Each structure stands twice: as C-alpha cells, then as structure tokens.
Computed example of a mutant assay.
Amino acid sequence: MMWNVQNSYEEVVRDRTTGKLYLVATPIGNLEDMTYRAVRILQEVEIIAAEDTRETRKLLSHFDIQGKKLYSHHEHNKWSSGPELVRLMEEGQSIALVSDAGLPAISDPGAELVRLSIDAGIKVIPIPGANAALSALIASGLGTERFLFVGFLPRDRKRMDDALESFRLESGSCLLYESPHRVVKTLERMLEVLGDRQVVLAREITKRYEQFVRGSITECLAYLQDHAPLGECVLVVEGMSEELRLQEPDALWWNSYSVKEHVEHYEQQQGLTHKEAMKAAAKDRGVSRRDIYQELLAE
C-alpha cells in the first residue's frame, strides 16, 4: 500500500481555512511542568475545550491567560459537544483540548473528539507534557522495555477479575490508575489473580508529598495497613517472566493445535456446542469468534 504524505493543493487550501485541534498536556501536580509551547498554544487558540472548566480557569489564571472562551467537554456530554466542536473547527476556529491533569485523550473523553476530528479532515496536533503513568514507570525500577497501559480497572469484582486475567500473562510492566479509597481492594484482587508480584505504588507524583512504595503486593498491602493512601495513585505491576510463562500449562496447552483442532478439543473433551467451542477458542487466542470462523473456512 502506498501512503501519500504530501498535501494536495486542496488540502493546503483547506488547512488555511479550517481550525486545528491541539491536544495540550497540562501539569499533573507541579505547575512548573507546564511547557512554554503549551502556554503559547493556549494563548493563541480561539477556544479551549476542558474536562472541568473550573480547574482549567485556575490554570489559565496562574499563567495569566485571559479572555478565552471555555467549552465544556466531558464524559457525560461528549456525544453532543464533540460534533459541535468539530463544526467550530470547520468554520475556522482552532481549539485546544485539555484534561484536568496530564495528557488529554488518556482515560478521558478526548479520544472520541480526536477520532471525530480526523474523520472530518481536521489536523490534530499533540502538545506533549506530563503523564502520570509514564512518570511512575520510569521511576519504578521495573522493566521499561515493554509495557501495557491499562488505565482504571472496572469496579465490579467479576469484571475486575476478568480484566486482571486478560493481562495475567503479559510480559511487560502493567500501568494502572487507581483512587486512594479503592487501591487496597485492587491490590487484594491482584494478589488473588496475578500472584504476589513486585509492584510500585506511586502517589502524588510531582507534588510536595510524592511517594513511591516498592515491594511485593503483600508488602505493599502491609504498608497500607499502617499508612492510609492519599491522593491519586499509579500502580506499576511487574510483568510475568518468561520462566513463569513456560510453567503455565493452561495458557499453552493449545499452542500446537490448529484452529480446527482447538475447536474440536472443546467439542469432544468438554461437550461444548460448535458455537460455544469457537467462542472458547477465540478467548484462548485473544481473537474474535469471527476470526476463528474465517480460519475454519480457510482450513
């Protein structure tokens, strides 16, 4: 496939007449982490779309950015505000999207606005800056060669366990966000599903009382019994070693099977229907049931 990376004349003309979407990172605690470029962009754009306009007003006030039109864009209104923001950019107004802290579109509704803008042919420009998950990772002491960002786990226990199980075999470090009143519960479920791995609890990153608690999950839970967690937390969880992965018979028993043999195993050994067997095989392989169906047709 040939990718065309050169703007056509029509695209150049459109670029001059439509606005742009700037994804502006904001500090996660320490206001000194705001970049010069981020301040300049906030000064130049016509509109600032904010997750919480109250928090954004404080930020603008600190950097003496005045006279800006703030537009609320959050989880509960994103499907109505998103198209309206795209319309404003199509009319020529540039917009800066900010979250309450850190990079927009990470665990907040900004991702939908980015997709809408791209679909409308609007240029999307990232303005890098602070990020809690990556800041915790690089200071964790755990592996950084490969990592998986998980974000917030579901609150329901069954769905939380399913989410933990989905990355139990992940070899890279796993990055999660958690609130202080739920972190103990989350660590307890991790211990049950993932085993007693090494973990780093990072809290109040870049703030005055920044803290990193390092150790096994059991040791971290013991620490939290005597020290109540305060502030938003990032959990960096050690990935499963290759040695342990090789000791996981349940995860590897089907590796030598073709897709057809995999499905037949569930039908013959566990008495599942063909539909149920395809679903089970798809879950093992981390693909959709449709993918399994297409593989069966090809065999």
Rank of each mutant, 00 (worst) to 15 (best):
N4V: 06
V5K: 05
V12L: 13
V13M: 06
V13N: 01
V13G: 00
T18G: 01
G19H: 11
G19T: 12
Y22A: 12
V24I: 11
V24L: 12
V24R: 07
V24K: 09
A25E: 14
T26F: 12
P27I: 13
G29V: 09
G29M: 07
N30K: 08
L31R: 07
L31S: 03
A38C: 07
A38L: 06
R40Y: 00
E44V: 00
E44S: 03
V45S: 01
E55Q: 13
T56D: 07
T56E: 06
R57K: 15
S61I: 02
S61C: 04
G67M: 11
L70A: 14
L70T: 08
L70G: 08
Y71P: 07
N77P: 12
N77K: 10
W79R: 15
G82V: 10
V86R: 03
M89Q: 07
Q93H: 14
Q93F: 14
A96P: 13
V98E: 13
I106M: 09
D108I: 11
P109G: 06
V114G: 10
S117H: 09
I118G: 01
G121K: 05
I122Q: 05
I122K: 04
K123G: 00
V124Q: 02
I127K: 01
P128N: 02
P128C: 01
L134P: 00
G141D: 11
L142V: 14
L148N: 08
L148Q: 10
V150I: 15
V150P: 05
P154L: 05
R155F: 03
D156W: 00
K158A: 15
M160S: 13
M160D: 03
L164G: 04
E165K: 08
S166C: 00
L169W: 01
E170D: 14
G172E: 13
S173F: 04
L175Y: 07
L176T: 04
Y177S: 06
S179H: 11
H181D: 14
L187Y: 08
L191W: 04
L194N: 00
D196H: 01
D196N: 15
V199K: 03
L201F: 02
L201N: 02
I205K: 02
I205W: 03
K207W: 02
R208K: 12
Y209L: 14
Q211M: 11
F212E: 11
G215W: 08
G215K: 13
T218I: 04
T218W: 04
E219P: 02
L221A: 09
Q225Y: 01
D226A: 14
D226M: 10
E232L: 12
L235R: 14
L235M: 15
L235W: 13
V237Y: 09
E238P: 10
E238H: 12
S241T: 15
S241N: 08
L244V: 12
R245I: 01
P249C: 06
N255P: 00
N255L: 15
E261A: 09
V263T: 08
Y266K: 09
Q269L: 03
Q269T: 05
Q270D: 02
Q270P: 00
K275M: 11
A281Q: 10
K283G: 10
D284L: 15
R289A: 05
D291E: 05
D291G: 00
E295K: 06
L297F: 03
